[in-house]
Design a protein around this nucleic acid. Structure first.
Lengths: 204, 204
DNA sequence: ACCTGAACACCGTTCAAGT
DNA sequence: ACCTGAACACCGTTCAAGT
């Protein structure tokens, strides 16, 4: 095949295809991305370095829709709440991406900006400097964990009949996964805010 | 090769080998487990059903060291704190197992027992029934996220020089990963406890 | 510059065949 | 009952070769 007049591929096209595969099947592979784009497997390496690179590009894509925060006109509480929920919202349409994200260091600068925003907000909250990273880390855990929950086809715990009465009772009348995940996340964020509000000081 | 007098394999041996591979390399494979045990790859299927099964057995193994909780003589706060930290402690020596765990539904009964204990404790705390699962879910996120952090060779965020001043400042003088993860987890658990104590009520 | 095709070293799972 | 070996359908990555 001769070299095409305009390239058949692009980084964007590769990332889009990989992301749609992740959304649909929970994973992607070079053969599948190549097939989808009607191109040979090795052609992908003209645009990306390796599998990790594609994943990092997907991370950037998903969080590029991050809404700009008006840090000035908000109380630190409202700012942090908005940041946390906005962060999570970006993942809502791509929850199956999370397992691929959690094993890789964050390099995307857009995502780094979210952390920077949180650091600023927490500083304004008067949180001890040594507690800023723990607090950000906590939000991170909550966002990723919450999104991860949307991945499971069923509930994460499926206690067998009879045993585990307290757990079974608590699970009994739960809403659909989306609502449940949202509720758990909102709950956790409010817990965090309440804790910060109370000015819990610990010696790290 | 004739059938050996006593079996060359056992579920326990397979799980131990897989777990040590995960600890060392962050993953395991059938060829590697088989090689380690001096056996052919397909022989493993006489003891386990598939890859998922091995992972679930590793989950059970890791959490089998769970300390029994004296629920009676503790305040709900101390009980929940102890449960959460004990839960996390089980993962401390096998943090690289976490990525394999988070994509699979929990079937192991021992692990289910931890959730049951938490449900009981939270009921005693007087938490609204509808908030029990969100609270347990929160602990779950925190434990897995905290353990996951021990996986990364470096810090999860590595902000480039110059940009992200607030984040860089917060990261500046952090302890070693183990201490940092411990601190973030302890922080988050205390936040949760403080929130529960305050009796934050939300309508889920 | 951009793509193909073959090659390599890996995977998980099945199954006939041996004792 | 317990294991081997071959087979199958997959992976990620490299590299010579084409235009």
């Amino acid at each position: 095949m001769p070299r095409p007049r305009s390239p058949l591929l692009s980084v964007d096209a590769i990332v889009s295809t990989a992301l749609s595969l992740v959304d649909a099947f929970g994973d992607f592979s070079f053969p599948k991305v190549a097939k989808e784009l009607g191109v040979s497997q090795s052609a992908l390496y003209n645009y990306i370095e390796n599998r990790e690179h594609i994943i990092e590009l997907m991370r950037g894509r998903v969080f590029s829709s991050r809404p700009l925060l008006d840090t000035e006109n908000l109380s630190w509480e409202d700012a942090l709440r908005t940041l946390a929920h906005g962060y999570r919202t970006c993942l809502l349409e791509h929850p199956r991406l999370v397992p691929l994200l959690v094993t890789q260091t964050v390099r995307d600068l857009g995502v780094m900006g979210i952390y920077e925003d949180m650091a600023i907000v927490l500083g304004k909250a008067g949180l001890a400097a040594s507690a800023v990273v723990p607090a950000i880390t906590t939000v991170d855990y909550l966002v990723l964990g919450s999104a991860l929950e949307l991945t499971a086809p069923e509930v994460v715990w499926s206690p067998p009949s009879g045993q585990f009465p307290a757990l079974s009772a608590a699970i009994a009348n739960l809403g659909p996964p989306a609502k449940r995940s949202e509720a758990a996340f909102a709950f956790a964020v409010e817990m965090l805010l309440a804790g910060l509000r109370q000015g819990v000081k610990m010696d790290f």
